[in-house]
Design a protein around this nucleic acid. Structure first.
Lengths: 342, 342
DNA sequence: CAACGGCTTGGTAGCGCTGTCAATATCAGT
DNA sequence: ACTGATATTGACAGCGCTACCAAGCCGTTG
């Protein structure tokens, strides 16, 4: 004999079936589709499974059925609060379903993303949720070859691999500037960190709005590839002031930078918004409770995650969403930090 | 025939072996332990795999080998920045290893935790990282029956299931109060949200230190089961002021509350620290860049996650850590918000 | 020169479950 | 009573990989 059975006491489906007096396949059906069984057998299998403390072997199930109940999620950062909200939405939507989540962190690298995508392939995921629309060509090939629902989240754009949910970062950037212009600000600076594709599109929105208003000036822009933080917000804002001392307002590419800028203003005894207006992005919870309260562009992160997961779920259930691309929009939350100049 | 082969074009290990001119088992060894092969065969298998674009089937591997390369991680919250840092540490430590992470969210419920633990069982994880030391009795039974390394993180206590890494929240709470007492503050309030077991132990530390100093007063404590947020920090602080208008300082059970309290002070035109000292907990990045800078108890969250994962890895590699319980300690970062009263 | 031991390689038989299809039981309608 | 349709159940084989053991190969040793 090539291999001796090393698991004498282990409870397999066969044991459950034996105790319940049914065939293994019937017991198997009990776990996957109980309605298909007669009431009597259903009860017998159920009590047998409970009595033996049966735990199904997922690997065997996956091998035999050629699919898993794992939904792969690719996000670029674990630290960024934005993705925490998205994740919460995903987890909430999947809660109670039989699907579980396999989370992977791309660290904002599309090469890393491609590697992780390959890794997911080996798991035959039931569905995939990936961040953004800037995948490598190879990543796209992989995604197109995987036979499972895929949702790209965080932004929308042309040519979805499968489904898509998000909003236009370009438009959102434009809207933030439109608000400031509307409030009478003219010299409006831009603060950006990380500069991932979505941030760059917000910058494009800024550039477009400013150019249109005849106010564009390269010196108003300060960016860095460094990951964002509140401390960085202060530093970048100081840099911006050095480059363009006459600015009246600043659009920060996220809320951490905005709060950092606010504190830098405090440090310099500049009054917000009288001497400096501040607008952030994402509308994290704290923006409404700072002093002064901070204007921000609200993005529907939780809903994005939740809906993305639900779109995968619906597709798996055979009810494919009518609209594969969903624009969740955004809204400029106008608060004290950017009220009209006098 | 019971089942016809439905995968005519799929690349299995057999195909790779055939192309490389070796037996399947030799090809298998290439992927698990390349050193065992002769140099020639190693190269042949490698190029064959690459040529065919072979992706191993993890389910089959798991079924045949009776184990997986998945490490289960149970944390109570995705939103809380504290766990984002822990997770980052875990992901960093596992990066480059062959292990992947299965993350599950207990939502601060030990019943949910037990359910998820059962779910993990079915996956035969290679290791387990769980938060805290307050598991249900059944959870403990499950954990003790699983044959894999387990690390309890975030705090230390008696009777580890297997390994443990964290610090004493009781001592940390005491240390925060000791610092305030040392700076001359006497009427010190306590602000707590969520009130999970670790927060309660911080409260015990507060109670112990205050009692010891002969300063304990039940009216100085304001807590809620509501999840923490900056806004809540402002609200709770207002409640505390209503109950005890004469307080001189406040110890907030986390940094969000502390920043919320700071803004509430601003709103009330109370000068920090002259009229009100504030101490937070965790020392998130923003504590050092607010105005005034905020004192906080630094906890080594990233290291906790990283070391926990490394402990699992080491155990899996057969090098069991000499010390199964690791105290990572904490440090009170003294900043402007709690400098000595005049 | 036979015996030995280390290294590499292969054969065999499953791991535990489920897809497929056939068989049987049940029931309504004529 | 018989037919056909539907609901339930079971037999069989195999999903793709690896554990176990055995065999082959080689150089070394007494």
């Amino acid at each position: 004999m090539a291999r001796k059975r090393i698991t004498p006491g282990k409870i397999r489906l066969t044991e459950v079936a034996k105790l319940a007096g049914v065939s293994p396949i019937t017991a198997s059906r009990f776990f996957r589709n109980p309605e298909a069984l007669s009431v009597g057998k259903r009860a017998r299998v159920e009590s047998a499974a409970k009595e033996l403390g049966y735990v199904p072997n997922l690997a065997a199930r996956a091998l035999a059925s050629q699919r898993t109940e794992v939904i792969g999620v690719l996000i670029p950062s674990l630290t960024n609060n934005v993705f925490a909200d998205v994740l919460r939405g995903i987890y909430d939507a999947l809660d109670g379903s039989r699907y579980s989540i396999q989370l992977a962190n791309t660290r904002y690298s599309i090469l890393q993303e491609e590697r992780l995508l390959r890794l997911f392939l080996a798991q035959k995921p039931a569905g995939l949720i990936v961040t953004g629309i800037n995948q490598t060509a190879d990543s796209r090939v992989i995604m197109e070859s995987v036979d499972c629902p895929i949702v790209q989240i965080m932004e929308i754009g042309p040519a979805p691999v499968d489904m898509m949910i998000g909003f236009s970062h370009f438009d959102a950037g434009r809207a933030a500037i439109a608000h400031l212009l509307d409030q009478g600000y003219r010299r409006i600076g831009f603060l950006g960190a990380r500069m991932d594709p979505r941030v760059q599109r917000r910058l494009e929105g800024y550039r477009s709005a400013m150019t249109e208003a005849g106010l564009f000036d390269e010196r108003l822009i300060v960016t860095t590839a460094v990951p964002t933080s509140m401390t960085l917000g202060g530093t970048l804002f100081a840099d911006l002031l050095a480059k363009a001392p006459d600015i009246e307002a600043v659009f920060c590419v996220n809320d951490d930078l905005a709060l950092g800028a606010l504190f830098e203003c405090k440090r310099r005894h500049m009054v917000v918004p009288d001497q400096m207006a501040i607008v952030g992005f994402n509308d994290l919870e704290f923006m409404a409770s700072s002093v002064p309260t901070l204007t921000s562009v609200r993005t529907n992160r939780y809903e994005m995650g939740r809906n993305a997961a639900m779109m995968v779920l619906e597709t798996l259930a055979g009810r494919r969403p009518a609209e594969p691309v969903v624009d969740l929009g955004f809204s400029v939350m106008e608060r004290q930090s950017s009220t009209r100049r006098v």
